[in-house]
Design a binder for these strands. Structure first.
Lengths: 200, 200
DNA sequence: ACCTGAACACCGTTCAAGT
DNA sequence: ACCTGAACACCGTTCAAGT
């Protein structure tokens, strides 16, 4: 009968989808399992650690990295994975910030940049920039979904914003190409003038 | 003697800077004012509304938009304003998400894009992409600052990440130029092939 | 090993009643 | 008009004690 960590994570995911992050309390999770809240502390050190495990479960839906994949497909997949669970982006962002996640969503983007010749440091920074955008954008979308569900925001306002996502993505990715091109032209020993001006 | 809304916001900012967002409770704010927690509800409908007012106070430090300003200067100013108060980015992000802020930090960037000929819709989307990146990046920096202060993260890890910020900013801004260039070349009636490929 | 019962120190919010 | 006192319905977490 023993409650297992995986079962606790599943119960938490169920409550998340049904009631949202604000109602995801230790007592509610325990109730869903037919157990006392204190029992969860035998399996998880604290709520943050449990939430990190839930984040990992959400990110487990991410497609594995593949050299064939484009950065855009990878980014759209991450957005989809976050959208698949209510408040998914906010939960993952919080867990990521405190650094308790095992799965790092950046990994695929880092590999993509490195496979195009970026140094590890810069690849990490570029990947994180994209992840920040995706998390922020999806948090906005899911907040709107919640407000629509409660009725404080009324149609025809749409929660999802595909165009906004695609534009931000295009900016980041073609911007990355410009940055790389500027760096290469300098390394190649051209005129020394960067061929990319950063003023908009 | 009456406690005034501005005084409540000031007290909240003081507690935010001294103890962080997690300790910013209605009871603590009331204590700092020598008043009961319930008294605050005469001046603010609820905690969210008060936090939105605090966010507005933080964003009041933003430099006004000026045609002379570059997008980069504007973005660095926003980062500075958020960094000026403990957990400033997280607080502003939360208030912005629920849509209770009076001040919208995007405004300057929207004006910048529009002054370069962008349509209002696209200018808004591009500006929001940049704001999402800035908020996400600064939240990460301030989370690190908190972890360093508590000692769970140890030096030589640095909380601030200027390089990461500058790279992300460069990607977004030169990416915006590329997007605009691609759109113009299409409008101009060139070969119809976009001159910007989106694969990295 | 795994869970309960009960407590501790908090929360946001409401509302009658005071001044 | 503005605030208090007291309550309501919650939190996360700890820990002795049970099985």
């Amino acid at each position: 009968m023993a409650v297992r960590p995986a079962g606790i994570v599943d119960a938490a995911l169920g409550i998340l989808d049904a009631y949202g992050l604000a109602d995801l309390s230790m007592r509610r999770i325990a109730d869903a399992l037919g157990v006392q809240a204190a029992a969860i502390y035998w399996h998880f050190a604290n709520k943050q650690t449990l939430l990190a495990a839930v984040s990992d479960a959400i990110l487990a839906g991410q497609a594995g990295w593949d050299d064939q994949l484009s950065l855009e497909v990878w980014a759209r997949d991450l957005r989809g994975v976050l959208l698949a669970h209510r408040d998914g982006a906010e939960l993952v962002a919080a867990s990521l910030a405190v650094g308790l996640c095992e799965r790092i969503p950046d990994a695929g983007a880092v590999a993509a940049f490195e496979s195009h010749g970026w140094q590890p440091d810069e690849a990490g920074r570029a990947a994180r920039a994209i992840v920040h955008f995706i998390l922020g954008h999806v948090i906005q979308e899911q907040t709107r979904q919640n407000l629509l569900a409660v009725g404080v925001l009324a149609p025809p306002t749409e929660a999802l914003d595909e165009e906004g996502f695609e534009l931000g993505l295009r900016m980041l990715i073609s911007g990355a190409r410009a940055v790389a091109a500027g760096r290469d032209s300098r390394v190649d020993g051209s005129d020394g003038e960067p061929d990319v001006s950063y003023a908009v």
